[in-house]
């Protein structure tokens, strides 16, 4: 199995290179003067040229990319003139907060989605199935930021039960901690729940149609034992979508964090966009994209352990 894992890791390298290249190209080459915000209004051409040399903007493009890439690898993202801080410092704090929210959302989304999907897949055609199927299509269609606002209206504005935003840490007590997490997690994981439920239902239902299920029943296994077999066979597509969902969570974090004033990467991106602080957008986007690639890599490796063929390196 190890050689296969290594091969998969090797495949991730060009992907990572591609991802960084796309972001770099997007935010370095597109219209707009990168120096405009950095220079005083009365700057001369000489000032301009000096700053351009300082920032390495006079070098040929491929060289600039390589330099930038090495900076990124070293965690060196430059300085944000708007926030008057090192970008890496801004990102570090934000990353922790996003990781906290995203992991809670991921776990909540997956657990809920898998539970609902399994129920629907086992009781195909029942009322539970119809409910889950209906819920899934609602969850897929509903904008997460609208759910967030609805939750705010109900739980903050009307019932005054939950705080409208902000972050809490564990030291302030679990009640405080979870009351700040509840609405961001719920609204952010809506899509995950829907997709996971849908894929799980389809995979379980499909596996129940496999012929080996007859053999399991013919052996006299209890229904829960049969379900265990079915679940292990059905897990692969669920894992794949779980990896992809991290994309929804990370992408959606921009909206959710903005609405709930959660000081994470998403809010950082939002504020940077508003200020046209493109280097922060660039740095944050790279970080999120790399996280996403690595998470999917992890999912792929995890998946290999469920597939006997891959386990044996076939």
């Amino acid at each position: 199995m190890m050689p296969l894992v290594l091969r998969r890791l090797g495949m991730a390298l060009p992907t990572l290179l591609g991802v960084t290249l796309v972001i770099w190209l997007l935010l370095s080459l597109l219209p707009g003067d990168p120096l405009a915000f950095l220079l005083p209004a009365d700057a001369t051409a000489v000032d301009r040229a000096k700053l351009a040399t300082e920032l390495g903007l006079d070098r040929p493009l491929p060289v600039r990319y390589v330099y930038w890439l090495f900076d990124v690898i070293r965690g060196e993202f430059g300085f944000s003139p708007f926030r008057h801080r090192d970008i890496s410092e801004l990102i570090q704090n934000a990353w922790k907060n996003t990781a906290l929210l995203a992991s809670f959302s991921a776990v909540f989304g997956l657990v809920t989605g898998i539970t609902l999907g399994t129920l629907a897949g086992v009781y195909r055609g029942s009322a539970v199935d119809r409910f889950v199927t209906g819920f899934a299509i609602v969850g897929l269609s509903v904008p997460s930021f609208w759910v967030a606002i609805l939750l705010l209206i109900v739980f903050s504005a009307q019932l005054r039960l939950l705080p409208a935003g902000g972050l809490s840490n564990w030291a302030e007590g679990p009640g405080h901690f979870f009351s700040h997490l509840a609405m961001p997690v719920l609204s952010g994981s809506m899509v995950s729940i829907a997709i996971t439920a849908r894929v799980t239902r389809a995979s379980i239902a499909e596996t129940f149609r496999a012929e080996f299920v007859d053999t399991l029943r013919a052996k006299g296994l209890r229904e829960y034992q049969v379900l265990m077999h079915v679940a292990k066979n059905a897990v692969s597509p669920v894992l794949t979508t779980a990896g992809l969902q991290m994309g929804f969570l990370l992408g959606g974090s921009v909206l959710i964090e903005t609405i709930f004033s959660w000081p994470g990467l998403g809010q950082l991106v939002f504020n940077a966009i508003a200020a046209r602080d493109l280097r922060v957008v660039q740095a944050t986007t790279v970080l999120i994209a790399v996280t996403f690639v690595l998470l999917n890599l992890f999912v792929d490796v995890l998946q290999m352990t469920f597939d006997p063929r891959q386990k044996r390196g076939v």
């Binding site: 796309v22 597109l30 966009i273 999120i288 994209a289 996403f292």
Partner: peptide
């Protein structure tokens, strides 16, 4: 495949942000 490596919404945000 390269585009698959991005969270779609994030990519859209990055492109939009750079285009204005």
């Amino acid at each position: 495949d390269m585009f698959y490596a991005f969270p779609a919404v994030l990519l859209a945000i990055a492109i939009s942000a750079s285009l204005g």
